[in-house]
Amino acid sequence: MSFKNNITSVHLDVLKEIGNIGAAHAATALSNLLNTKIDMKVPYVKMASFNEIMEFVGGAESVVVSIYLRIEGDATGGMFFILSVEQANHFIRKLIHDDKFDFQDTNVSDMGISAMQELGNILSGSYLSSLSDFTGLKIQPTPPALTVDMFGAIISYGLIELSQIGDHAIVIDTTIFEEHMEGSESVHGHFFLLPDPESFETIFSALGVL
């Protein structure tokens, strides 16, 4: 099954639309939650080698705050919501009204952790439910898991399924940012959607572009 050779530009456009719809709903949810304006960029869909993916978001060693969940149901895959430590701190400080909260503290407060988990829950939930509405596929997220660590160590976990097929993945990357914070590269949050190889057929046939 060499899905790498069968993907056309029409397919990539459809995946872009998925990133668009999903992240737009997530951005609205975040905007309501924080009572601030959240914008998003045009989704970036790319067939990338694993080593190219490792260089996303500042490189394999850069420390990020990540929410990861598995998608189960008609289509399966992995989903990451990744924030720089500064951006995650900024959101959580706003949410729990604690200016000193920091994910890099040795004793991170439970309050902040559960707020981040809830944030991940809400964002990924709205992303996936809009995806489900758009495709008509029944998909459910697993409870999200939170971790603060090196980007490479985190994203490689989402590549395990794909690595059994080859050394490339289709990454649907949508960036969101708080409006007045734009211009600084470090403040962007990324949604990465990594469908499992066997799910592309399901997604494309659900949208009539097989």
Binding site: M54, G59, A60, E61, D149, M150, F151, G152, A153, I154, S156, Y157, I160
Partner: peptide, 15 residues
């Protein structure tokens, strides 16, 4: 790698 050089890999998780 051969002496005197070093060899590295970044971001090992489950790998």
């Amino acid at each position: 790698v051969k002496s005197p050089h070093t060899i590295r890999t970044s971001g090992l998780g489950s790998c």
